[in-house]
């Protein structure tokens, strides 16, 4: 009985240790005010994703984080426009890996975006499939659209 309880606690603990790699990598950084991740966040009926949020201390630190992650920087901001970038799932600083046919390998990609006013970079992990990719895009664009209206 004691072994059963220990085993069940171990399994539950193992399952709950679900922080994303990026969260663990950036969690102790001084230039970041806050790091968080949301695991298994529901976007629509069939899509659940892990999301990591990195908030820089100020705009200078934000610029540095964007440079570090090699995120495309926009010169002009248009209301409701969203810049999202497909990156390597294990390290968002690297571009998204490609398959032999030259297409992006979604299986090993994550989707990265940012908000300059919030000094926040957000990462959608494990894009994996085209359907999930479209769901994430639709989710982000719906939010941006809501703000534009």
């Amino acid at each position: 009985m004691k072994h059963l309880a220990l085993f069940l606690m171990l399994m539950a603990g193992f399952a709950l240790q679900a922080q994303t790699d990026i969260y663990q990598r950036y969690t102790d950084r001084d230039d970041l005010e806050r790091v968080a991740c949301l695991t298994n966040r529901r976007l629509d009926d069939g899509t659940r994703v892990d999301i990591t949020l990195l908030r820089a201390r100020d705009s200078v630190a934000m610029r540095a984080v964007m440079d570090e992650l090699k995120l495309p920087q926009v010169k002009e901001r248009r209301a409701g426009s969203v810049v999202l970038s497909l990156r390597d799932n294990t390290n968002p600083a690297n571009p998204a890996p490609t398959r032999r046919d030259g297409k992006v390998n979604l299986r090993r990609s994550c989707l990265v975006g940012y908000s300059l006013s919030e000094n926040t970079v957000f990462v959608y992990h494990n894009v994996r499939t085209e359907r999930r990719y479209q769901s994430i895009l639709a989710h982000v664009l719906a939010r941006a659209q809501k703000q534009r209206n």
């Binding site: 059963l4 085993f7 539950a12 399952a15 806050r34």
Partner: peptide, 18 residues
């Protein structure tokens, strides 16, 4: 039982923040 608990915990949304 362990598999059930693991599946349940792994599919439940969680939030972590430093």
């Amino acid at each position: 039982l362990g598999g059930g608990i693991y599946a349940h915990a792994a599919n439940t949304p969680h939030t972590y923040c430093n």
